[in-house]
């Protein structure tokens, strides 16, 4: 069974319709834990994008030789391998960013979103389609993390990407660790509100 969607549709699907953070409510831990700045969101987004794309491609490449009974262990092994690789690469070449993300890079291995995409998409589709799906999901995750980071950084520190834009710090509250929960909740409510308003407008 091959998907009839174009690559663009696959990518936008990951970013909007099935956004891992705001729509599927998966991989919430880093969304709450380290979304304090745009940069953090971007870095983790890159790592997830890398793992998702490589795992999707690997699985779809080998989909015919993977025995259905050991499907899940194979997925886990694939993801763990790529996570280890990206972990080592980041530790070697970007020690400062790596130190900030701490344990979360290694925890990508337990992200439900990646396993889910492998099970639902990559094990049935062609390599190209899986690649674009992986890119879409990765970008969707990155988009979610960065938009959270943007809100928290702007409101908490008055900066964007470390550049001072407001000149003052509106609400220190948003930088504090637990504010991640409030921030995610409020943003989800905001997206819901837009959707409700859109539907109401359509009906009228």
């Amino acid at each position: 069974m091959a998907t009839d969607k174009t690559s663009l549709q696959l990518v936008t699907n990951g970013i909007l319709n099935e956004n891992p953070i705001f729509r599927l409510v998966l991989s919430m831990c880093p969304a709450v834990g380290i979304s304090t700045t745009v940069m953090n969101g971007f870095m983790l987004g890159v790592a997830v994008l890398f793992v998702q794309v490589f795992s999707s491609c690997t699985i779809s490449l080998f989909k015919n030789v993977i025995h259905p009974r050991i499907r899940i262990p194979t997925y886990t092994l694939t993801i763990a391998t790529w996570v280890t690789v990206i972990d080592m690469v980041l530790a070697a070449y970007m020690p400062a960013a790596y130190a900030k993300m701490g344990i979360f890079i290694k925890l990508i291995v337990a992200f439900a979103i990646i396993t889910m995409r492998l099970e639902m998409f990559a094990c049935k589709e062609s390599v190209t389609a899986s690649f674009w799906d992986g890119v879409g999901m990765g970008l969707g995750f990155m988009f979610g993390m960065m938009s959270l980071g943007l809100v928290r950084e702007l409101l908490g520190q008055g900066t964007i990407l470390g550049h001072d834009v407001l000149g003052f710090k509106p609400l220190l509250f948003f930088v504090l660790p637990f504010a991640g929960f409030f921030c995610v909740g409020l943003m989800m409510a905001f997206f819901n509100y837009i959707e409700l308003a859109y539907r109401r407008a359509k009906r009228a």
Binding site: V25, F178, A179, G180, F181, F182, V184, G185, L186, M188, A189, N192
Partner: peptide, 9 residues
Amino acid sequence: VPIAFIVAG
């Protein structure tokens, strides 16, 4: 989910 997040916060 949104209200659950606020409560968790």
